Simulated assay, not measured.
Amino acid sequence: MSWVDITGWVIVVILFVVGMAGAVYPILPGALAIYAAFFVYGFMISFEPFGWVFWTLQTLIVAVLFLADYAVSAWGVKRFGGSKASIWGSTIGIIVGPFVIPGFGLIVGPFVGAVIGELLAKSSMENSIKVGFGSLIGLFTSVVVKVVLQLVMIAIFIVWLLIG
């Protein structure tokens, strides 16, 4: 194994780790980091194992991940009676929360954002808090979906290398 191969594998593994961390921490480019790892492998080691079926499967999974991420989070808010304002608030909270409250902001941010959004939409405090909890359920469900699909992406990559 050459130094280029070793460097390629190190970068691939780092991108996989960043990708999996991105499933939980939304600022990191989760699925895109994993997708980029395939290109790093191809450029530094070989594109030979990957044909159109591999790229089609991986691209479809990335597309599903992007759609599911938003849809599942919005579902949690909507399921608990939230408005568009609470969906926006939850989305802003998930982005800003980790910076305002390091460590806990990932959970507190979407909750507070959804509550504020719902209060701005003239909802009662009780309903706003219920919608805030819905945003957390959506967030946790979204994280589970992302982790599973990103692990599937990595598994397909490994299987393709073993059979290719």
Rank of each mutant, 00 (worst) to 15 (best):
M1T: 13
M1N: 08
G8W: 01
V10G: 03
I11W: 06
I14T: 14
I14N: 01
I14Y: 02
L15P: 08
L15D: 10
V17R: 00
G19E: 11
A21I: 15
A21L: 15
A21C: 12
G22Q: 13
G22F: 08
A23Q: 10
V24T: 13
I27N: 12
I27Q: 13
P29Y: 07
P29W: 05
L32I: 13
L32R: 01
A33E: 12
I34T: 12
I34S: 07
A37Q: 09
F38S: 14
F38K: 03
V40K: 01
V40Y: 07
V40L: 06
V40G: 02
V40R: 02
Y41T: 10
Y41V: 13
G42S: 12
S46C: 10
F47L: 08
P49S: 04
P49F: 10
P49D: 10
F50A: 13
W52M: 14
V53H: 07
F54I: 03
F54E: 14
T56W: 12
Q58H: 06
Q58C: 08
Q58A: 09
T59P: 08
I61M: 11
I61T: 11
V64T: 14
V64D: 13
L65F: 04
L65S: 08
A71R: 04
S73C: 08
V77A: 04
K78R: 14
R79C: 12
F80H: 07
G82V: 06
K84M: 14
K84Y: 09
K84C: 00
A85G: 12
A85M: 07
S86C: 08
S86L: 12
I87E: 15
I87N: 11
G89H: 04
S90H: 02
T91E: 00
I92A: 09
I92P: 06
G93M: 01
I94H: 02
V96L: 05
V96R: 02
P98L: 07
P98K: 01
F99W: 08
V100L: 02
I101G: 04
F104E: 09
G105T: 11
G105L: 01
L106Y: 01
V108M: 01
P110V: 05
P110D: 07
V112N: 02
V112Q: 01
G113R: 05
A114L: 03
E118I: 07
E118V: 05
E118C: 04
E118H: 04
L119N: 08
L119V: 12
A121Q: 05
K122W: 03
S123L: 04
S124K: 06
M125L: 03
M125G: 00
E126D: 15
V131C: 03
S135F: 05
S135G: 03
L136Y: 01
L139R: 02
F140K: 05
T141I: 03
S142K: 10
S142T: 14
V143I: 15
V144R: 00
V144A: 15
V144L: 14
Q150R: 00
V152I: 15
I154F: 01
A155H: 09
I156S: 09
I156N: 10
F157L: 04
F157H: 07
F157G: 06
I158D: 04
W160E: 15
L161W: 07
L162K: 08
L162H: 09
I163N: 00
I163V: 14
